[in-house]
Structure formats: C-alpha cells, structure tokens
C-alpha cells in the first residue's frame, strides 16, 4: 500500500475534526427530540468517494479515536465503523450510482446500520440494563436528522478529498460506471 501525505493529511483532518465536533458540540444539539451523529456520515462520505479499503481504514481510525477520547472500551466503536466504511465503499465500487440523491439514502441506511451495530457491540460487551422503547425513536430521529445533513456533508468532504481522488466526485455521469471488483476507486497514492 503506497502512502500519499496530502491524502493522509486530508483524511486525518476530516476524521479528527468530525470526532471532535461530534463529542464536544454537535452531539449535544437537540433538534425535534433527537441528535445528529456526524461520525457515520463522515465515514460513509469518505468511503463513498474513496472506496472500501480507505473507508474501512478510516472507520477503524475514527472508532479508535472516539473510544480514546471518551474513555471507553478501545475498539468498541471501531468494529461497526469498519463495517460501515467497507460496505459503503463496496456499494460504490460495485454499483456506482449516478443519482444525485444517492448520498441521502446511503447516509440513512449507514446511520441505521451503525446505530444497530453499536447496540449489538454494547450487548456483546455485557450491557446489563433494561432497554427503553425510546431507543427506537432516537434511532429513527437520528437517521432522519443525519439524512438532512447528507448532501451538504458529502459535498464538503468530496471537495476536501477531490485533489486526492482518482474519480472526480463532481463530474456528472449519465450512466453508472463499470463495476470495480478488483481495486479501489481510490485515493491517489493510497491504492491497495
């Protein structure tokens, strides 16, 4: 795996800024009784632009940083975020959807899967408490609120990664690209 400092710096900057913003500011903003969760949106956006391997690696890094920052079991957040990054990246590599609203659907599904997977990990680590039905309401609200942020954040992260991407995310295509079974759509210099 080659390394390209500008691509690494960009991805690292996005990950650190996202986790910091989430835990120190955005996570506590309550809207309609729910909260935004920037982390799955950022990981989904990076994976969507750069592919499955950068998505999984970024998910791992974001998860570890999150756990270290909040003083939680190190690795607990990384597991769902690795899966999220990998599968969003694979979806882009195999399907390459051209519709402009695809990020909204990607973020909605990603957020739901991330929250359910995080819950599953919490149970596996021995969560011993009753679960309120309001968890489901919170999940639905977070999915809805995150979907509102999908387009602007995908645009912003696409702009930030653009110089390092093999495929320009802002070039409009009429039909989907050829499925990529064997390689990343990629960050320049970070190819597998």
């Amino acid at each position: 795996m080659k390394t390209d400092p500008p691509a690494l710096v960009r991805v690292t900057g996005i990950v650190v800024a996202t986790v910091l913003l989430q835990v120190s500011g955005v996570g506590s903003i309550e809207l309609l009784g729910g909260n935004f969760d920037l982390i799955p949106i950022a990981i989904a956006a990076i994976a969507y632009c750069a592919g499955s391997v950068p998505g999984a690696v970024t998910g791992f890094a974001a998860g570890i940083l999150l756990d270290l920052m909040v003083g939680r079991e190190v690795g607990a957040s990384a597991l769902p975020l690795i899966a999220l990054g990998y599968f969003v990246g694979r979806y882009r590599e195999l399907r390459d959807p051209a519709h402009g609203l695809t990020p909204v659907a990607v973020v909605a599904v990603s957020t739901a899967i991330y929250l359910v997977a995080a819950a599953a990990v919490a149970f596996m680590l021995g969560l011993d408490a009753l679960i309120s039905l309001l968890v489901v309401r919170d999940l639905i609200l977070t999915v809805f609120l995150n979907s509102l942020l999908a387009l602007p954040l995908f645009w912003l992260i696409g702009r930030m990664l653009r110089p390092s991407l093999h495929i320009d995310p802002f070039v409009r295509r009429r039909r989907r690209g050829r499925p990529i079974e064997s390689g990343p759509i990629g960050l320049r210099g970070l190819e597998v």
Binding site: M1, V53, A56, V57, F60, G75, A76, A78, L79
Partner: peptide, 15 residues
C-alpha cells in the same frame, strides 16, 4: 486488510 482491522479491534478490546 479488512480482516486485519477487525482482528486488531478485537485484540484491542481484549487488551
């Protein structure tokens, strides 16, 4: 790489 990341996470959790 995917397997490595998952195994690393599990090892970190165990540690």
């Amino acid at each position: 790489i995917l397997a490595g990341l998952i195994v690393t996470s599990v090892l970190l959790l165990t540690a």
